[in-house]
Design a binder for these strands. Sequence first.
DNA 1: AAATCCACCTAG
DNA 2: TAAGCTAGGTGGATTT
Length: 996
Amino acid sequence: MEGKRVNGSPVTGGASQAKRSKVSGDWEDGPSLFEEELAMLDEAEMEAELREGQAGHDVIPVGELGGDLFSADLNPRWRRPQPPLLDSTADKLVFQQIEIDYYLGKELLFAGGGGARSVAAFPSSASVSAVHIHTLLTYATPHRAHNCVSPSGFSPAHLSDFQKELNAVVLKDMRSNKDSVSVTVLAVDIKRKESMYGFHGNRSVDFLRITMAKPRLIAPAKRLLEQGFKFGSFPLQSYTSYEANIDFEIRFMVDSNMVGCSWIELPAGKYRVREEKGLVSLCQYEVDVAWTHLVSHPAEGDWQRIAPLRVLSFDIECAGRKGIFPEPDTDPVIQIASMVQRHGEKEPFVRTVFTLQSCAPIVGSQLLCFTQERQLLQSWAEFVRTVDPDIITGYNIQNFDLPYLLNRAAALKVDLFAYLGRVRGIRCVIRDSSFQSKQVGRRENKTVNMEGRVQFDLLQVLLRDYKLRSYTLNAVSFHFLHEQKEDVQHSIITDLQNGNEQTRRRLAVYCLKDAYLPLRLLQKLMCIINYMEMARVTGVPLTYLLSRGQQIKVVSQLLRQAMRQGLVMPVVKTEGGEDYTGATVIEPEKGYYSVPIATLDFSSLYPSIMMAHNLCYTTLLQKGSMEKLGLSSEDFIKTPTGDLFVKSSVRKGLLPEILENLLSARKRAKAELKKETDPFKKQVLDGRQLALKISANSVYGFTGAQVGKLPCLEISQSVTGFGRQMIEQTKQLVEARYTVANGYQANAKVIYGDTDSVMAKLGVATVKDAMDLGREAADWVSTHFTPPIKLEFEKVYYPYLLINKKRYAGLYFSSNSETHDKMDCKGIETVRRDNCPLVANLINTCLQKILIDRDPQGAVEHAKEVISDLLCNRIDISQLVITKELTRSAQEYAGKQAHVELAERTPSSCWRITSPSTHSTTWSSSSPSPCCASSNPSWGRAKPRASCSVRLFTMPFSLLGDLLRVFCTHMISLPALPPGPTPRGRPHPLQDCAHF
DNA sequence: AAATCCACCTAG
DNA sequence: TAAGCTAGGTGGATTT
């Protein structure tokens, strides 16, 4: 045992040192911190390993003589422990469900039906063993996704005619019938339902519920029914569809009252363990159960837990050619590092690198060295199947590592590679998908199917949830972990591979770290917990959260609530229309305030407006409804935009109900959070309250999404309409009450406000007084509004610098009136990502000097110094560009014509890259796009321009000058500029400001 | 030279 | 097939 452990420190000695330097330049001699960390993991495990007789971490040469030394049992830790035998008559089966997909099966309990398959992980009570089950769910009404109002005079006697005719029409419509389906319409029955769109006097009517044999058949059936359908003696007529556009997964989960990542119980005797010959998965248990026998536990109490899921993180290295991005057809995969960790544990229990050619040992990890790339790939796939991860992560695995491996394996004809999922016989296939939204622009992605495992690419998580200046793994790790990658330049990877076992070792350490960092980030950012909580709160599968947009989450909640009330959701045609009016931004009284400014906010403004006024699809009075239903003016309200909604006494809206549930659940979560002492449960609860808040806020956006599942501008414009009225009224109330005439120290003045907040100068001298008066004002103003609308005192700014609409800075006091919590900057260069670090830092320092030190002269000195350094080329280039990566990608993007220069020392533009071309959203497929060039959907459709420049650095002298002029009578004097174009454009915001 | 459009990214 | 919303500042290019 001991003998197997090899000291992993790189050999340091004259000759080898010189040799290595030639290949790779210099690096530190001793083992890196990361290597020490790895070694420590190993030591910690030694005792346990000795006890278990565990193979140590070592170097295993594989296939040296062309033999097949690789075995899935090379390391006993890989395989899951053998689970106990399952007796379906006596044991219940309990598991946390993490993924769901569907397939059509012939062997189902209900002939001709479809099936849902869910793969899940489950901890057997407190033991460490994790168990996998594969559940076959038969679903009595699998594709009920289609409802329409029955024609008048329709009775149950007509059902079979209708079914027969529709079946015939759908069959005829099918272009090809590969599976020789003869029955397309499985069932038609009558249900009392009501459309959720518009108020109809609380009267349900007969709907036809049509069950189709396959999800694929729903769309044609819908189309045919809409086009006009004739059956029996009924005339040709068009049928409007409801809920025909709901994804199967959502449909199933809503109908079976199952939310994402919930715990499921299969009672003893209600499921059947599959015989050997019926097994289709690699899971340890495989059972069949009727969907009606599923018990789905709400995520409360013990059911909040998260199973000890196996998380695999991996990273690959390829040997590319000089200056060419690696291509799987030509360039080999030379290393794959993998780390596996059970969720909830601190460190990965598997740390392994598959290398091509020999590699010197690394303490703390196992090395498998291959002489042939084909065998490396095949063995790694075998490794994945053995380790059997529930979640697969890494950095950019979705768009790079996974597709590269699959393409490379295909190029080398490693046929068994592509079976990485849990279902036998299903190959992983790469597909191109594009995701487009106004929010993030167009995102081209690759997707790889992997049944039963959740792909959780950390880069995708970060792109969705965090606004960062750079998304490289290095930058992200530094930002969140204060840790960085091992220092290996991309360009030398091939040289390291072609060196010796020491250079390859260096590469392996680098590769391991790239597999390790995503795990650390996942943990630090609590991604798994937060995503699971979001899945539970909104009811969608975990995978939807990374692959889909915001709308599906609202749809899921809407359908759940609707089902309880016997409502169905119409299918609406999506077409963009006119934008509607949004929120008010109060005209700012620009200037510098050396008195406390109190800020009052409406908390959850839009949700509370919807609740207060019962705004919903179900309460909307469409044209003519009011007269038709004979409603009196007592029954409804007219919103500021002139839309009519019935009051909650007539009908309580769905949306207000959903919002109330979300917000009260959030209150509960926060209360529990306060009481909870277990740090793990605390994280879960915090994740939940966050998910609940986000969910509540996205309901309004959903109603306003004109290209969406169920837009309703009457709701969204009424919401903003109320909001506009409220902020205006708040301003007037505050200014009317807090006056000298009413016995206050001064006349209050609202100097700014945006959407749901007002900033008021209350005329008091201290932060404490501002807080007290602010609280009083908030409470008093609140009494003028319908609950749950509430104005709250939030913070005091002192001092406060108001530059323009959406641009201000100030010291933020909220908890303590003696000390400020932070310097708060909104909209200023310091918080924007389209400026280089130098600008952000300079402005930040100046603001600090002005606001915190109250030392304007110091700010001027500092600015002068920096600008002088800049003009004399004394500034490090990394300060000038947003990131080094950006420069590189910009050059890639702009091609050879790219022109990087310190250019045009005009007052506003100092550093730029110019390029003659304009479109191209692809930067570098390996490194993520720079943030400033990726996020506008109009890229690519924009009118081509004669020239285009990627702005890497601009010095906003105007802003700086204005900032400094706050206290100085003269502009800062700049070193003389070479002649250039004179500045043009709008006047500076603070130019004609009386305050200065 | 002024007006307008465009791209970007933020506030809320 | 799927895609939350509007307001708005700022720098730069293009049009008038």
